[in-house]
Design a protein around this nucleic acid. Sequence first.
DNA 1: TTATAATTGTGACCAGGTCACAAGTTCGTG
DNA 2: CACGAACTTGTGACCTGGTCACAATTATAA
Lengths: 185, 185
Amino acid sequence: MGHNSKDERRKILEQELSQHPFFTDDELAARFKVSVSTIRLDRGALGIPELRERTKAVAQEAYSTLKSLDDQELIGELRELVIGERACSELMINESMVLAKARVARGHYLFAQANSLAVALVDSPMALTGSVELKFIRPVQLGELVVAVGKVIKRKKNKYWVQVSVRVGTEEVLRGDWVLFAINR
Amino acid sequence: MGHNSKDERRKILEQELSQHPFFTDDELAARFKVSVSTIRLDRGALGIPELRERTKAVAQEAYSTLKSLDDQELIGELRELVIGERACSELMINESMVLAKARVARGHYLFAQANSLAVALVDSPMALTGSVELKFIRPVQLGELVVAVGKVIKRKKNKYWVQVSVRVGTEEVLRGDWVLFAINR
DNA sequence: TTATAATTGTGACCAGGTCACAAGTTCGTG
DNA sequence: CACGAACTTGTGACCTGGTCACAATTATAA
């Protein structure tokens, strides 16, 4: 066989499976015009488990992350919370939060962190965002740790004014003013 | 057997499996102190497929939503786009987007839809949000179809002013003004 | 041409099922 | 108490998508 046909095939196989893990060995054999045995040897050499194991892995991974997203009323991790006064949360910017091209956090993740922090500050089982003014001061890069600090600056009955400042280190990257309403049905 | 022991078991079985789909029939049999055959009958009656099918379903669902989230530079489905002019997208509010208590859409989903629409309008491989002013006019309920319409109202070099109006039916639920910057590295 | 590497085929076995059917158990009611 | 209906259990044949070990075949490079 070609000096590199095997290694090349294995490289492609590895890529394909990492991108699209739901192929049987039969399908792979057809796709690579090679016997099933060869595919099995290749998988073995590459340490890639069988279809069912791959499926299971995807399912379990996804299952656990879905679960945790479900609980996530608050985006980021809460560090401090004095309801009606001040709060602070942290968010690590990971792969799933950045624009593919730019490795820069999508605006709505930062908004989500700040907004959920503002909501948490309201002394009520439920709060709705009324209006917001915000400035994105500089883009946030992949891997940066973002810290949001929120303060209630005014309150009139069920209406709250909250200021949120989002920082990376000491540098402010986002600042916003929220007006929220407490609903206490 | 008890007058309701079967129906009760099936009810619990259904719940258990919907919450935690990775049990084999053997494990379920042990758990319910009943034979494997009975579990199979129960599953059959409830229309619940075997472990592998369940795993596959979870994996594929998760895989496709992960994929689409990955591609999802844009939140919602694009209906119209004339870059640099106007655009329109739709978003169906589902379970995962609402606050557990109130069945009302979390603010950051609406923001995400509007923000990603605004970003899409900018004629550039990449755009960053500069500042935003927005008003949440009324909360959006679970199951409502949200339509966002964006217009570029002004442009100066790489700086864009975009207005986004988000509606449910004819009713405006969110309105905002964005200032964005095109990055053309 | 021949040694070596790569590929292919074969047969036995496994988990976690499906399906059809027979046999055993429990229960309420006459 | 007996009996029929509902429920439960067991059995055997078969399926998919593999594993593993080993033998046979087919390139390919020297």
